[in-house]
């Protein structure tokens, strides 16, 4: 059927209208503010391996104590763990201690394997986990090249005196789900909401020591912040020649940057 004059006219009017709307939208849109991308730097030259961060993390995030029956089976849960690396043997031997939270990779292998969407990358780059959605298949614990994911082999237990000290801002996890570091996202959310109520813009100083590990570190080795902000502490430290990431050749692009003067292996 040949188009009638009316049909042609309709099309032309619709096209002009759409073009005008598009132009209007383009004018109205402000230059898009870059989304935040949370990252962490850990200065190994400052770290004394005191493990305050490990304790603070356990306390903040209601991480259960595995207890004497689970620990020998290597079922302890540490969102922030202190790994020991030993080089050489006695007279010349030396040790390196490495505080290791989740790397919150930009290309996270764990997210790709989750069959139920329980783990995901948030708008601000945090690799999160929704405990209630996890079915406990443990694909993600296998996929994570850094072993930063932990399975709850038993119901969580705390010593009697700690039961009334659980953090209400973090849900406790039942038996049968995987859990991991969340960069203390409950604290990020709280500080963002508080600033919104007070009507002020957030600054780098609001985040620098926001996660429990960073807040507790007596050597100020752990710094936290927005990696999309070129002037933030983490961005500045990330440009340091001392900076490196764990297993960089895997292409996971971790957002936890370590700093160390000496070479990794000598």
């Amino acid at each position: 059927m040949n188009p009638t004059r009316r049909d042609v006219l309709k099309t032309v009017v619709a096209a002009v209208g759409a073009a005008a709307l598009g132009a209007g939208e383009a004018l109205a849109a402000e230059p898009a503010k870059k989304k935040r991308k949370w990252g962490m730097t850990i200065d190994l030259d400052r770290c004394t391996a005191c493990q305050a961060c490990v304790v603070a993390c356990k306390s903040e995030n209601n991480v259960p104590c595995a207890g004497p029956d689970q620990m020998p089976l290597d079922r302890g849960i540490y969102w922030m763990d202190m790994l020991a690396i030993h080089e050489g043997s006695h007279p010349e031997g030396r040790s390196q201690y490495l505080p290791t939270p989740c790397n919150h990779c930009e290309n996270p292998p764990c997210v790709k394997v989750c069959p139920v969407g329980a783990t995901f990358q948030s708008e601000e780059g945090i690799v999160g986990q929704i405990w209630a959605r996890c079915i406990g298949c443990r694909y993600c614990t296998t996929a994570c090249p850094y072993s930063r994911r932990y399975f709850n082999w038993s119901d969580p237990v705390w010593p009697e005196e700690m039961k009334n000290h659980l953090n209400p801002d973090v849900a406790t996890r039942p038996k049968g789900v995987v859990e991991k570091c969340t960069f203390c996202h409950q604290r990020i959310r709280a500080v963002q909401e508080k600033a919104k109520v007070e009507g002020r813009e957030l600054e780098d100083g609001d985040f620098r020591k926001l996660p429990a590990c960073a807040q507790t570190c007596p050597a100020e080795a752990i710094m936290f912040g927005d990696m999309n902000d070129p002037d933030s502490t983490v961005s500045e430290l990330g440009r340091s020649p001392r900076a490196f990431r764990l297993l960089e050749d895997l292409g996971t692009r971790p957002k936890v940057v370590f700093l160390r003067e000496a070479k990794w292996k000598e």
Binding site: S122, G128, I130, D169, R189
Partner: peptide, 10 residues
């Protein structure tokens, strides 16, 4: 409004 999981889950 954002439907990012971490907006509402803890």
């Amino acid at each position: 409004v954002s439907t990012d999981c971490l907006r509402c889950h803890k």
